[in-house]
């Protein structure tokens, strides 16, 4: 527990001290959401205001960048630099180290979700008509699923360059196509097909349905199956491919 606490504190300190990461993970998604929110003020999407629609999409973007891309790339950089190996020369458990990184990513996601919700409500009069507690739970699940995928990606990537290119190649389309900024129904079929192959689509669907449409979380069976399947698959790959150096 002591080690976990210290490790989370360290992850937080390192995050705050790295300006480029803060910009990329915190500022960039917020600006994107503000920009699109401003452009489409007063618009309606799927029966709710565009700004409400955008809340779930913005959170989805953050999950993809903080939990998946940033965590995966940072981990593979630490492996390449030799920091991980030095940690491997202590009794710190792998699970504690990764748990701390996931906790840190989750924290960023919560802060960001708070910012997104507040901005959309204050500036663009968005409304949350669904279940916030369930929204919270889905956020946690999403953070865990995408962080695990980031760790798995590090495991199968030979080095940081590969990991970072692959993470970017997956994260970039996810952040824009998965029903985050535009409704899936409004996209050309090719892109819709692509979106249906990306796991973020299912998370955003679930989150939006439960938090904004007020649907029951249990009416999204397909979404749950995809997300838990990703968690299981990525978890197995992550465990099999983890290495200190």
């Amino acid at each position: 527990m002591k080690a976990f606490r210290h490790q989370v504190g360290t992850e937080l300190t390192l995050f705050i001290r790295d300006r480029s990461v803060v910009t990329f993970v915190i500022v960039f998604p917020v600006l994107t959401v503000l920009f699109f929110g401003y452009l489409n003020q007063g618009g309606q999407v799927e029966g709710i205001s565009y700004s409400s629609f955008l809340i779930a999409g913005g959170i989805g973007m953050v999950i993809s960048s903080a939990a998946f891309e940033n965590l995966g790339v940072a981990l593979s950089r630490q492996r390449e630099e030799g920091i991980l190996k030095r940690i491997g020369a202590t009794p710190l458990r792998i699970a504690t180290l990764l748990g701390a990184k996931i906790a840190m990513a989750t924290l960023i996601i919560f802060v960001q979700a708070g910012i997104m919700i507040a901005l959309n409500m204050l500036l663009f009069r968005a409304q949350i008509s669904g279940n916030l507690l369930w929204g919270f739970i889905i956020l946690l699940v999403g953070a865990l699923v995408f962080a695990t995928m980031g760790i798995a990606l590090t495991g199968i990537s030979r080095n940081t360059n590969v990991a970072s290119a692959a993470a970017r190649a997956i994260s970039f389309p996810m952040q824009f196509l998965c029903g985050t900024l535009f409704p899936l129904a409004a996209m050309p079929p090719v892109l819709r097909g692509l979106a249906s192959a990306l796991p973020l689509t299912y998370l955003v669907n679930l989150l939006r349905g439960v938090m904004l449409f007020g649907d029951s979380p249990w009416s999204y069976t397909k979404e749950w199956i995809v997300l838990l399947g990703c968690l299981l698959g990525a978890g197995m790959i992550a465990i099999k491919t983890f290495r200190w150096e």
Partner: peptide
């Protein structure tokens, strides 16, 4: 990006 003291306390927490 850690300070010397922070690094040592972090490693101390591992044991």
């Amino acid at each position: 990006d850690l300070r010397v003291g922070e690094l040592l306390r972090l490693f101390a927490s591992y044991y």
